[in-house]
């Protein structure tokens, strides 16, 4: 029974979170804290923190975390499946429509408008990440002393390497993590 409830809860979270990422937060909170009481508000805040510290979309992270606490490994799998079911169905329908009609003029027009918009949205996300890294996650201010200089240095070196040579992005991220682990302890 708990598996069914988990599936249905996360199905709704998957279905109603449009726009990705933090848009899903209030929905997750509503289902797991308010409606079912699976987590306290503090535990929910912990899940959000963990999500920022681990890879993967926040809704999937929440599904795995809550699923495993409520019903072990099957719970984690069922909650995750519930979360991705709407995505699978809707994305497949849209993919079918896209590949069937992308020759149409109106469709091409719409896509011509969407492509630059997508580039703008990714640029926006990228700049937000840079600000977040430089100002240690605090609000961005004009105060230069609040800037995390090591973060600026890692960013600059990493970007230089990426532009100059063909290196794996994963290697860059791991390298940046190792630098952080080795140097930050001496700075604080």
């Amino acid at each position: 029974m708990i598996l069914l409830t988990l599936y249905w809860s996360f199905f709704q979270i998957g279905l109603f979170s449009i726009g990705g990422g933090y848009a899903a937060l209030p929905l997750i909170q509503n289902q797991v804290v308010d409606l079912h009481g699976w987590l306290t508000m503090t535990e929910f805040a912990d899940v959000v923190t963990l999500s920022q510290m681990t890879p993967g979309p926040i809704a999937i992270n929440a599904a795995s975390f809550i699923g495993i606490r409520m019903a072990g490994i099957p719970g984690a799998i069922i909650a995750t499946l519930g979360c991705i079911t709407p995505s699978i169905v809707i994305s497949l329908i849209l993919a079918y429509v896209y590949y069937k009609y992308r020759g149409l003029k109106t469709f091409q027009g719409i896509m011509n408008g969407l492509r630059p918009a997508v580039v703008a949205l990714i640029t926006n996300a990228g700049i937000s990440l840079v600000l977040l890294a430089f100002w240690k996650g605090e609000a961005f201010t004009a105060d230069i002393s609040k800037v995390d200089l090591l973060s600026v240095a890692i960013f600059t070196v990493a970007l230089f390497i990426l532009r100059k040579w063909k290196v794996s992005q994963i290697a860059i991220m791991i390298g940046a993590g190792v630098l952080g682990l080795c140097i930050y302890p001496f700075l604080t």
Binding site: I122, L129, V130, A133, M173, I174, G177, P185
Partner: peptide, 18 residues
């Protein structure tokens, strides 16, 4: 510490693509 370093690395990766 590791995550703070990685955050800067991720920012560089996404700016490169941008």
């Amino acid at each position: 510490y590791t995550l703070r370093g990685m955050q800067a690395g991720v920012a560089a990766v996404i700016i490169d693509v941008v």
